[in-house]
Amino acid sequence: MKYRSVFDIIGPVMLGPSSSHTAGAVRIGHLARALFGREPRAVTLHFFGSFAKTFRGHATDVAALAGVLNIPMDDPDIRNAAAIASERGISVAYVPEDAVPAHPNTLKVELSDDAGSMSATGISIGGGMVQMTEVDGFSLRLSGESPALLIFHKDAYGTIASITRLLAEGCININHMEVSRSDRGQTALMVIETDEQVAPEVIENMNRQKNIYKVITLNI
C-alpha cells in the first residue's frame, strides 16, 4: 500500500497551492539534500511531464529549491527560496525537459560543491507523497518515510551478508531492502529502509567492511 496513515490523506499541512506540485516538490528537495548530506553550491532542477508544463504556475521551481535549502514544508519562507539561495551564493538553474517520463510528476535534482556532485530523481505521487526513483544513475524505490541506508558496494558475494549481519548485531530491523546493479562496471547499490535509526558506530563499521565504497544515511 502506497498510503498507510490517515495523515497521508488529512495532511500534510503545507503552503499552497498544490500538494503534488508544491508540497511533493519540497519533499523531493528535502530528500535530495539529505542524501547529499550538506548544502550544495550549485543546484540544477530538471522538470519532466506535468512538472515541465506547469512548474511556474504551481511554484514547483520555488518549492523544490526550498526543499534543497532545507526550509520546512509549512514555512512561508518557501516563497522566498530564490532570494535565500542567492543570498547564500548558491547558483540555481531550472530546466524544463521534453522527454516523457514514466511518471507524470518527475523531478531530477543535481547538487554539487567543490567536494563532489550527486543526482537524485523523485516522483510526486499525490497528496504530497513522493518516492525517490534514482540516485547517481542507480534506480531505487525510496519513500523517505523511514530511516534508510544507501550503500554503494562492489558486486561480490558475501557483501550483502556482511551488512545485514551488522544490522542484526545492532538490533536494527529492516522494513524494506533492495539491490540494484548499474551497467557502469561492477558497482551495486543496496537500499535498506529500517525501523530504527542506525547508530554512527554501526555505519563506521560498515565502511570498514570489504568491498564497501560509500554509505549514505538518510535520517528521518
Partner: peptide, 21 residues
C-alpha cells in the same frame, strides 16, 4: 482562495481539493 494565495492549508486529500472537506 487561501491555497491559491500560497497560504498554509491542510491537504485533504490534496491541496487542489483542500476546500471541499
Amino acid at each position: 482562495e487561501a491555497n491559491a494565495h500560497m497560504g498554509i492549508i491542510c491537504a485533504s486529500p490534496t491541496a487542489g481539493a483542500c476546500g471541499v472537506l
